[in-house]
């Protein structure tokens, strides 16, 4: 690509990306978060190319219970479905498709075949892999976990899909009873050591929201469980959409 064409296409993507607010303002200020949670630490070149060249963006989400059934009032309120809408709004004219696979209780190793299958069947431009919870809860070998995730990430990059690795949900009880540290470090290290791979730090983001009193699923009274989960997923989707938009913007620079 010549310099001029590169600049032109970058400007086109920038124009697309900044034309529309990242997410509907319905969730209000409750979603507010420090910039480090809503900006990308690196570029998402495959997603950017898909948006630029095909006006299409295919996102595969593989995850555990919190991605498949996160306690929201309806499927449509969960973060994968909301992300599809938010991304469509962020990239007008681009056809955004989000597909979700996985299920409750799955370890990283359980999900690896689902990732491979999804990559082959769905051919995504971006893989969002939400993982680590079950491995940490069960105390499985952290090095083996990181190896498994690394393997999946390598396969995704080979098939021209960028990757966002999403870590655990924050809760005070699991912080006290589960040692998430080594698994989170494993995910961070894979994100840090591979171009086209980002870490989405859900644990720290949810911890921030809980500390600031914006969103607190764990301490909500039973009657508000669903409403809090809906809010959480809306805000997660919004933060994810902003990260993706920023990653695409960086790839187009």
């Amino acid at each position: 690509m010549t310099g001029w064409r590169r600049i032109l296409s970058a400007m086109a993507v920038l124009a697309l990306a900044s034309a529309v607010p990242a997410a509907p303002a319905a969730a209000g200020d409750r979603c507010a978060a420090p910039a480090k949670f809503t900006t990308a630490a690196g570029a998402l070149p495959n997603a950017a190319a898909a948006v630029r060249q095909r006006q299409a963006l295919r996102v595969l989400i593989v995850g555990t219970g919190s991605s498949i059934n996160g306690g929201t009032s309806a499927q449509a309120a969960s973060y994968p479905q909301r992300l599809e809408k938010d991304l469509a709004a962020a990239f007008p004219g681009v056809s955004v498709t989000v597909q979700t696979r996985g299920g409750r209780g799955l370890t990283g190793a359980d999900m690896l075949p689902l990732v491979v299958e999804g990559l082959d069947d769905f051919r995504p431009d971006l893989l969002i892999w939400q993982t680590g919870t079950i491995d940490a809860v069960r105390g499985l070998d952290p090095d083996g976990f990181a190896q498994t995730i690394g393997e999946g990430v390598e396969k995704a990059l080979k098939r021209r899909a960028d990757v966002i690795l999403m870590d655990m949900q924050f809760s005070r009880f699991s912080r006290a009873a589960v040692n998430y540290g080594p698994y989170r470090h494993g995910l961070d290290s894979i994100a840090n050591t591979n171009a086209g791979v980002l870490a989405f730090q859900r644990y720290d983001l949810m911890r921030f929201w809980a500390a600031s009193g914006q969103i607190d699923v764990e301490r909500a009274p039973r009657a508000e469980w669903q409403a809090q989960a809906d809010l959480l997923h809306a805000c997660l989707a919004r933060a994810l959409a902003e990260v993706i938009r920023d990653g695409i913007r960086q790839a187009s620079r």
């Binding site: 919190s66 949900q169 006290a176 589960v178 469980w225």
Partner: peptide, 25 residues
Amino acid sequence: FVAQVSWSAARFANPAYIDEINIGA
């Protein structure tokens, strides 16, 4: 640890923590 987990697990009946409830498995 058993006391902590069995005492706290009730709160994890919240479906938002469907995976984390395995701590008490």
